[in-house]
Design a protein around this nucleic acid. Structure first.
Lengths: 158, 158
DNA sequence: CTGATATCATTTGCATACGAATGAATTTGA
DNA sequence: TCAAATTCATTCGTATGCAAATGATATCAG
């Protein structure tokens, strides 16, 4: 289906359509969703290379608990953008490793309170500097000005 | 832990450190990895709202096969940024639905060739216009100029 | 007060995503 | 040539991520 095999009519059509963005061909590698997925993959790989024993979602849970203190599992999920099923798995694994502990809310018996253990607090405080490095490496292909622009626009899409 | 409970010494420390970017506090919601994850989540949700019966990775596989024609499973994985284990699962599910078919490479017996079926070709050609809409909606919070800038910078990170 | 709603957590099922190990086939290099 | 290294595919284990269903509890409206 090379362009050199097109008839004159097809060629005319192509020339007309080229004006509004080559609508005839679909280039997966130019789609925002595909590039977004790849950029996310690269970040996760960088994260793993620096922090091998914790995933980004696990880190996010610990960092948020460190920031705001004890909360319900549901509220934590909202703050770190995880649905209820996902956050449960993350908390279960952190609990199994002794990094967080859970307790029942005294008043509202539906709620499960989550908090850092001393080990969890030590871990997140040790890891935050590494996370800053990961952020830097993720953004390393951009200049400082580009980084500011990128983060501003990315935030609009999130 | 409010700032109004800080001692005078802490306050001085905070003022000094504020000069190089508030390094004492870690704000998860400002980290590129976290925002990248949320932006990706939003895109996947938009995708699902328009194309309910196919996931973005499945769509990517069909779109790439439509673009380049028959190829090995391994090569396809490289082109759509999936490792061998992941692409196998995606192809297995597309195969089970009759959208792709696989065959053995005659010369190199290690390779598994993958190609669209007529049904797969019809499906991807029907879905590509929807995918364009999804791209538009994903980028809707940005102006045209911002979109161009964003895609250029995002590509640098991917 | 109480029935309808809403919220919180859990469970199940399905689909990525990737590291590590394995086996088969191919390519390389001394 | 032939042993070593590489490539391709598969399998296993672990970890998100989300929809849907369920059960317990809490809130709201009449």
């Amino acid at each position: 289906m090379g362009r050199f095999e097109m008839s004159g009519e097809d060629n005319l059509l192509r020339l007309v359509e080229a004006e509004d963005g080559d609508e005839n061909n679909y280039h997966l590698q130019d789609q925002v969703g595909f590039i977004l997925r790849k950029a996310h993959q690269r970040h996760v790989a960088l994260f793993a290379s620096h922090i091998g024993d914790l995933t980004p979602p696990q880190f996010a849970a610990l960092a948020k608990l460190h920031d705001i203190g004890e909360t319900s599992q549901n509220q934590l999920g909202t703050l770190i953008a995880m649905d209820a099923a996902t956050v449960k798995g993350v908390i279960d694994r952190l609990k199994a490793r002794g990094l967080v502990e859970v307790s029942k809310h005294e008043v509202d018996k539906r709620r499960l309170l989550v908090n850092l253990t001393p080990e969890g607090r030590a871990a997140i405080e040790r890891l935050i500097p590494l996370a800053r490095t990961i952020t830097e490496e993720t953004l390393a292909p951009l200049t400082a000005k580009e980084t500011a622009t990128f983060l501003r626009l990315l935030a609009k899409l999130a």
